[in-house]
Write a protein that binds this DNA or RNA. Structure first.
Lengths: 347, 347
DNA sequence: CTGAAAGCGCTTACAG
DNA sequence: CTGAAAGCGCTTACAG
């Protein structure tokens, strides 16, 4: 009844547990025939080693953990396969761990690092509001990928490298693009009112672009995400756009800071009898697959997923190999011009 | 440099490691003041116990694992929060583990069960083609939720309970609905040609409904998913629908066996100059949030997510509490009548 | 090439 | 209430 252990296998094979261990771990010093004999028993009895014991004993693994805040973000979901492939190609075990919105990813990271003897950690998403305090105790290489709130003005902990896009800058480009297309009444659907991450940064870029172009910032044109609906979802985009439409504020274009929300916004516009882009242009953000299939296909900002992944992995590898260099890389996103934005003349 | 252990804390506090352990685990026999003194040090040094050691020593945890095959399925993703909530409400730790398409979920389950001293396992998705062999060695309570290929004709391992919908029956209902709406040339976009899971089952229901209504099954109307594109994605639905359209086969309605694929199919139809539902009706499957926001909103089959979750958890709890009863529950899905299906008259 | 022994970092009877 | 000791299931020097 009790689960099979290495002792049981040893007894059955009439060898020591050392030998069983060597067989399982493919130790080069073991006799090939002994190994085969042991492995046959292992297979026959379906013996699986206890990983807790293994991890406890081993001084190091070759595992890298990807710690994700917000599993519901399809943009992150799209990154998983890339991380997995790159890491496995490099011969590392890949461990995906998701943390809930309320959990402290620093604590979780530390706990897993101990438990699994991690070689390194890549944080994906989240806020890292208190990098100093949280990161202080994590002694292994780590990289923050797409972690918001790490713009240049913030002081970043000297032990971490970061890879991200320039959220504020990209938002700025989006708004400049809309302005070039003749829009002046430009709405934004952004994060919650108290947001401290991408919502805040993208809103900042929006505002800056407006001001640089002599367009007064108008609080009426800012739609804050509804904090009673899950973040970044279609439902939230729908509700927020609907509220703005009902408020009577006029605008000819809307910058929605996530693609899923843009999909909800589309629906709200259609429900109000508006056509896209004839009556209202829409731009999304992230560049997830779905946007190609929206009707009309969504003009959006495509995050450089492969570069973000590649670069995160490379920086982690450097640290694992002893480099003490830390970098803070910013990659350019790409504006995908599709069919949801219309040129209007201001005559 | 080396990570902090319970010994270090004991030394610093001038107590035994037993006492530190008792403080951390909130053992009722410990003196409140001692406990506080220890915990202060724990906090100060940010000590985190090694879970491997813990798991190794403890004879049981109160952890339940959710093992998911195919993290990319948004339908499953939508279920996570429900599982988490139910399990945590019941006082269990919840562990989400995803396995890749190639991995053997039985092996993985067994390994985690050992490592974490699991109380139970819920499998979500996947095929479980060889229930006998795989499940033989897992000695802890387990429930299969939405695991395909477990229709009544298959012989299910006596140690497992299952919760699912009737894929074939629901597909049957979809097609009957389309027939009632006047359609006779009904296409289906289903799984890959060699699919043995939901694709096969839903195709079977489609075929049966046709035949019962005196409509000859026409292989031309079956669009098998493109096996060169990730499964169940918009891109795959787009490519498959496009191919069908280009083949020149005529149809007035299409049953697409996943909502995401239906989104891709929409686009292919639009690209071909067709209107939905005027020129072609479309029905999806799953009932994910996005479908409400499609244009037109998608008529689809909503899987009873909450019931599937609730029931899976309840059956697992019964087993954990000693019940030897096994059930195979089938829940009804709900046809969400929205705007993508049109009534046509056959005059 | 193989085995006996130490020890990874914890928890938990058992004494006191 | 606290401590000394055993032991969870492994891996890995160290002998032989």
């Amino acid at each position: 009844m009790a689960a099979l252990t290495i002792k049981d296998i040893a007894r059955i094979c009439n060898v020591s547990i050392s030998t069983v261990s060597r067989a399982i771990n493919n130790d080069p010093t073991i006799n090939a025939k002994t190994r085969e004999r042991v492995m046959e028993v292992v297979r026959e009895f379906n013996y699986i080693p206890n990983n807790s014991a293994r991890n406890l004993k081993m001084t190091e693994s070759n595992t890298v953990a990807l710690i994700v805040k917000g599993i519901n973000n399809p943009f992150f979901q799209g990154m998983f396969p890339y991380f997995q492939k790159r890491l496995e190609d490099l011969g590392y075990q890949y461990l995906l761990h998701t943390v809930g919105g309320d959990a402290d990813e620093g604590y979780v990271a530390e706990a897993i690092a101990k438990e699994k003897r991690l070689k390194g950690i890549i944080f994906l998403g989240g806020k890292m509001n208190y990098p100093e305090k949280i990161l202080e105790n994590i002694r292994i290489p780590m990289v923050l990928c797409s972690v918001a709130g790490l713009s240049h003005e913030d002081n970043i902990h000297p032990r971490v490298s970061t890879v991200s896009i320039d959220d504020s800058g990209e938002a700025h480009k989006v708004v400049e693009y809309l302005i070039r297309k003749g829009h002046r009444r430009i709405a934004i659907i952004t994060g919650q009112k108290d947001d401290l991450t991408v919502g805040r940064l993208r809103l900042r870029g929006y505002r800056k672009a407006l001001e640089e172009n002599g367009i007064a910032f108008d609080e009426e044109l800012v739609g804050y995400m509804d904090d009673g609906i899950p973040e970044f979802t279609e439902a939230n985009g729908y509700a927020t756009m609907k509220k703005m439409l009902e408020s009577g504020t006029e605008f000819t274009a809307a910058f929605v800071i996530s693609d899923r929300m843009a999909m909800g916004a589309y629906k709200a516009l259609y429900d109000a009898g508006k056509r896209i882009p004839e009556d209202c242009s829409v731009i999304g953000f992230d560049g997830i697959e779905m946007t190609r299939y929206m009707q009309p296909s969504l003009t959006t900002v495509k995050q450089p997923v492969e570069e973000l992944v590649e670069s995160s992995v490379q920086m982690l590898m450097k640290q694992i190999n002893g480099s003490r260099e830390r970098k803070h890389l910013i990659y350019d996103a790409e504006l995908l011009e599709r069919d949801s934005v219309k040129f209007i003349s201001n005559s």
